[in-house]
Amino acid sequence: MTQLSLPRRAPNLSWLLLVPAVALMAGVVYVPLIQSAVRSFGDPPSLQEYADLFSDGITMTVFWRTLGSAVVVTLVTLVLGYPYAYMMTRASARVRGLLMTVVLVPFWTSAMARNFAWLILLERNGPVDRIFQFFGIHDVVFYQTTTGVTIAMTQVMLPFMVLPLYSALAGIDRKLLLAAQGLGSTPVKAFWKVFWPLSKVGVMSGLVLVFTLSMGFYITPALLGSPQNSMIAQLISQRATQLLDFAAAGALGTFVLIVTLVLVGMANSQGGSISAISVVVNTDSPKGNG
């Protein structure tokens, strides 16, 4: 029996493609993250900083304010973004391009420009204030309030809701709605029983994206809010750069990270069984059936 010598296979080195990005992420994100987490336990290590978070009387107030504002922003962007994304799937290619541009313009303008625009809109005796004054309403204040910050953040976050929603909705086969109607559903019921469940993946990714971004949002609250109404990110910044209390800043950062991860994990476990379906929806939808 002759031994066939197999050609020596070159070692598979394609994993090297991962190295640049992983190195960057490790160096710039994960190492500092771990460092700040380690530092948060202080020297000698204790849970004192974490205990202080709950007892200092400020941190929790700011945390709940941030969480509340993030929840409101997330839900309002969903309510505004879903119909918009839905109409984008129904529109002609031209109108769709226009609608897409309208969503993307905020992406193309600098964050500073956008937030200064809000500043001008919402400031005392600014256009918004004057409209309210015109109707004789003088006690509505948006500038340097949580309400004003939340309104501006909603606008800034809207694209992050619309884009994942659009890509999910565009993948749903519209024949399914006709089928549901043919089987006895009103158009409204067909939407809730067929279209909405199939769009949940997009809803989930939009919710997670907007919520996580809102939790850590810095620039809008910093410009539009006031120190009395600060958000978590400002508090962290203040503790790190002004008070130079790195342990406290690290503890706060770690705490927010954990809360966010838990909430995202819960959302993903909700969407887990659904995301499997979305793959099917996208691959099974008819391709160019006359």
Partner: peptide
């Protein structure tokens, strides 16, 4: 009359089954 009031069955070329429902739930739908 809109489609849902005509009480007609319809079969599509690409089946149009609801992908998030089991066979049973699909058939039970109407």
């Amino acid at each position: 009359l809109p489609p849902h009031k005509r009480n007609l069955g319809m079969l599509f070329q690409n089946y149009a089954l609801f992908p998030h429902m089991s066979v049973y739930d699909n058939v039970a739908y109407p």
